[in-house]
Simulated scan of single mutants.
Amino acid sequence: MIDFIVWVLQNIALAPYHLFLAITNPGDWLNWSNPEAVMRFIYYGASVEFFFVVMTAFAVISALGMAWKREILWTCVRVLEAFANGVGRFAAWAGLLMVLQQVMIVFLQRIFRVAEIQLGPLGTAFSQDLSWWGEELKLYNAIVVCLCVSYTFVQGSHVRVDLVYSAVSHRTRRVIDMFGSLFFMIPAITITYLYAWFFMWRHLMTPTVTATSDLDRMLMQARIFRWNVETIGFSPNGFNAYFLFKILIVAFCVMVFLQAIAFFWRSYLEWIEGEDSAGKYADYDTTGDEAEDLEHAIHSGST
């Protein structure tokens, strides 16, 4: 136990040094024309060093906001929630594209008996079988799920079933929210990210990298590094860019992790400042119908 505590303290103490090295030597991990830089990026993207840099930054910002000036935390909350809303509102258009494309496929396939769809934007030609476009609809669905998850959370639109939360006081709810952020959201999404990170890279390049590979081994593997982007579909003429789904899983993890931090900070601030601060600075969407907006706010817990 003592050895573990010493290990944690050492990594926390070294976190500023590791961050300084990464900032001052970007070519060592961002120059992707160099295979060793790619391997460093892959290694550090899910490394112990990166984990402690992120968590130390979270702890320092939290301490500054709690002990010195709460506006620091409010600013961070507003920035993170604005990011979640911006990404989500943009990605939500994929839902409209999915519907329009599905209607187009049905008409072309069932009525006009078209075998393929060809697009030629800006003088280029992109032609794929109709089954390719049909399977590609799953990508739009994945975009909505992965990139709108934090946006939906900010808007209070996730389905919520509880037996205790709605019956307790404002301050008790905020304590529950803080506990859930720290002990459920952050650990769960961190573990998911660690698996998703290497799962993604295994479908983008060779040789295969794993979570158990150390940096020295990965630098040796850089000698045989080459891009090998997955282009295998489930059917001969089907959608063949499934590597995009792996990238979206990582993006999903990042979005949820950032929202977990923002939710913890918001819950703490609303706990400190009282019930009048509930929904402070929140950017909620409206339908234009006051009754419907009020009903949504009541069900989402934002009022």
Rank of each mutant, 00 (worst) to 15 (best):
I2Y: 10
F4Q: 05
I5E: 08
I12Q: 06
H18D: 04
T24K: 04
T24D: 14
P26H: 12
P26T: 13
G27D: 08
D28K: 03
W29N: 04
S33D: 09
F41L: 07
V53F: 06
M55G: 14
M55I: 08
V60I: 10
V60L: 12
I61L: 10
L73M: 09
G86S: 07
G86M: 05
Q102S: 08
Q102D: 04
R113M: 03
E116P: 02
I117L: 03
L119H: 13
Q128F: 12
L130K: 04
L130V: 13
W133F: 03
G134P: 04
G134C: 10
C146H: 07
Q155Y: 01
S157N: 10
V159S: 15
D162Y: 06
T172R: 14
R173K: 12
R173M: 14
D177K: 07
M178S: 15
F179M: 07
T190W: 06
Y195W: 09
L204F: 12
T210Y: 14
T212S: 06
T212P: 04
L215S: 02
A222S: 11
F225Q: 10
N228V: 05
E230F: 14
T231P: 03
I232F: 13
G233L: 09
G233D: 08
S235E: 07
P236I: 12
G238F: 00
Y242G: 11
F243I: 00
K246D: 02
V254L: 14
V254G: 05
M255W: 01
F263V: 07
L269S: 08
L269V: 11
I272N: 15
E275R: 11
E275Y: 15
A278I: 12
K280W: 05
K280M: 01
K280E: 06
D289H: 12
E290H: 05
E292A: 13
D293Q: 01
